[in-house]
Structures are given as C-alpha cells and as structure tokens.
Design a protein around this nucleic acid. Structure first.
Lengths: 124, 124
DNA sequence: AACTTGTTATACTAATAGTATAACAAGTAT
DNA sequence: ATACTTGTTATACTATTAGTATAACAAGTT
C-alpha cells in the first residue's frame, strides 16, 4: 500500500498517516490480520522520523484499528465499539454537513456523495 | 446565540468558535445580514483574548461565511463557491466514512444520520 | 550471539495557540 | 471637534505541540 505524505499540508504528518491507513483498511488495501511495516522501516520509506510513525501507530491502536506486538509488529485488528463509533461520526458529520448546508449543498447531493464514497469501499 | 468553549478540548479555541458559528448559520440561529459581536465584546463574553476571536473571524471571512467591515463590524455573508464546497466535502467525508466503515457502520446507517443532521438544519 | 520488535527517555528545534499591550485608520455618535 | 467603536496590524512573550535525533531497554526471533 502506498503512503503519500504532503509536507506542505497543514495537517500533521502523523494525522496524514493515520487517515491513510484507515482509508486503506476501508478500501481493503489493508486486510485484518495483515502486518504494517515496522516503525523504523516505514519511517525510512516515507522519509520521516521513527517517532512520528510510532505516534500514528499508537493513536491507531488507541482508536481500535491496530494491535501492537513486540514479536509480530503492528497488525491490523479492528476493535468495534459501535455506539462510540456512531457518536463520533455524528459529531464529525455535524461540522461537515453544516459547512455543506451553508454552501447550498442539498441533502440529496450529500447522499449522492456518501454513496460514491461507500462505493469506493465496496470495490476496494 | 450561545457560544460554549471547552478549554479542555484538544480542538483549538478559534476552531471551536469557527465550527459553532457555522453550525449557528446552518441552524438559522444566525441569519445572513446579522451582526456578530465585535471581537472585543465576544472575547470578553467568552473569557478569551481578542486576537483569538479575530483569528476565528478572519478564517470565517476567508472561507466565505463573513464580511468584515470597520463600520458595521462582522456581518454574516455567505460567499458560495459550490464546486469548491463539494470538493472539500468529499475530502472531509472520505475520512469520516472510512472510520465509520471500519467500525461496521453501514451505508444505510450513514444515510440515516445524514438525514437526522439535515433535520436539525431545516427546523433551526 | 546477533538482530528486530515495540517502547521509553532525553534533548533539541520549529511552528502554532493563546495572551497581553499598544497603536492606527476609518467610521459613528454626542 | 471630541470621544468612542470598528477591524487591523505590530510586537513580545509563554505554553504546547510536531518533528527530529540518539540512545537504550525488554521481549522475542533467527
């Protein structure tokens, strides 16, 4: 799986890593049980510091996307707390959709885009 | 309109202000043409520094939600670039929905929540 | 024994968030 | 005219975060 960092982005590097790994899981580029590169290898590949990768992995573990094991390394493992996930989604969506509504994006248009993106997931 | 700052949040104060004002516009608590408090008044009310409010106002102006005028102060005024808005929405949604999909939230469930939130807007 | 894994500790730089004063230019109100 | 309010800009300072750089440790593999 290709990880691409934008060093000019206002988004922190470890957040970019986190988001891309989550997107990779959603699109089946990363499968449950699969190993991620070691923090040192990934840091080397992307051209950043080991601790920045470690920060991303630690957050992904805390958010329930990874298990970290000294022997196996970082393994994709989803821990589902659906109530929590729905709550977070509502909070995130409230901001995104308020922006959209102010810019005259309709409920129907929002649904279309949601369908598009879910399409990206199902096809991988 | 009530603005509530969470000083323990990991979200920056000026981002909290921005998001709440956008939500206020979407829910018609703030109408187009209406004045916001002056940067000094709002800072006083909320208990923060003038420049933090100014930062939020400047961003809201830049993102097309406000007009700033030395005589009238800050006035709600939506500048719509729909293509840009849709592009931003897609990028935001891609992250939010990838998280949701990993946590077994279905497309149907996502649609229900979108409807809920649009309901908040139409009723004010 | 050598190597790799995540993990922790320490130290440093750079950037950002927030506060604190102060002043300026343009406009309003008295 | 004078006083006041508006956004705006400048400067300076503190605290926090992001990111880098080394180094070492514990647990496990080869």
């Amino acid at each position: 799986m290709y990880l691409q960092i934008d060093f000019n982005s206002d988004e922190a590097i470890y957040i970019q890593l986190r988001n891309q790994i989550i997107y990779g899981i959603a699109t089946s580029q990363l499968q449950v049980g699969e190993n991620l590169p070691s923090v040192r290898d990934l840091a080397e590949d992307v051209g950043i510091n080991m601790h920045t990768v470690n920060k991303a992995y630690t957050i992904l573990k805390q958010e329930g996307y990874l298990k970290l094991d000294r022997r196996k390394g970082a393994v994709i493992a989803i821990d589902i707390d659906k109530l929590q996930a729905i709550k977070e989604m509502r909070e995130d969506l409230r901001v995104v959709l308020a922006k959209a509504f102010c810019k005259n994006i309709s409920c129907v248009e929002a649904h279309e885009i949601v369908n598009d993106i879910f399409g990206e997931f199902e096809r991988g």
